[in-house]
């Protein structure tokens, strides 16, 4: 299957200091960086988990919107992969809430959407998503995005 260049990294809009900060925090606490996947479709969750674990990341998952923010706050992940259409609370909502919280304002976020509206992309950028990816995506693309945002996986 040919690679979808649509979902390239050029949409990254995260501020530089946010990237830098995100890269250093896990090392400071000497804990393996965690990628938190918030996605309600079980097979997609399973695929992402497989792909990122294979690349060396610790992956946690969560499958609903309404308590996703608490999950992020408690887990202090290095990166959040956030679906837009979630039961209970939309991904945009969660992103906004994150950006309003001091501890989570800098955490990199990759938004995933199956709708692919242009205005959704614009909204994600405005609300401070680091990346916006449309489903379906290439596995390599997701891996590259994660590495771009939080560096190399721990050896």
């Amino acid at each position: 299957m040919p690679d979808d260049s649509d979902n390239s990294i050029r949409t990254a809009t995260a501020p530089a200091d946010a990237l830098a900060g995100a890269g250093t925090v896990p090392e400071a606490v000497a804990r393996p960086p965690v990628v938190l996947v918030i996605e309600d479709e079980p097979t997609i969750t399973e695929a992402i988990r497989f792909i990122l674990q294979r690349d060396g990341w610790v992956v946690r998952t969560h499958d609903r919107g309404h308590d996703a923010l608490e999950c992020i706050r408690d887990g202090q992940p290095a990166l959040v992969i956030l679906d837009v259409m979630l039961p209970g609370r939309s991904g945009f909502d969660i992103l906004q809430a994150m950006r309003a919280q001091p501890g989570l304002a800098q955490t990199p976020v990759i938004m995933l959407t199956a709708k692919g509206h242009q205005q959704d992309r614009a909204r994600a950028e405005r609300d401070g998503a680091s990346l916006f990816m449309t489903k379906p995506f290439a596995n390599a693309e997701l891996v590259a995005a994660v590495r771009h945002l939080i560096g190399q996986p721990p050896a």
């Binding site: 479709e41 997609i44 695929a47 792909i51 379906p136 995506f137 290439a138």
Partner: peptide
């Protein structure tokens, strides 16, 4: 779009795997 892309995402991801 959403309903079509969701299964397609799983299909593509696992076939690539």
């Amino acid at each position: 779009s959403h309903e079509l892309r969701t299964p397609m995402t799983s299909i593509r991801a696992f076939s690539e795997i």
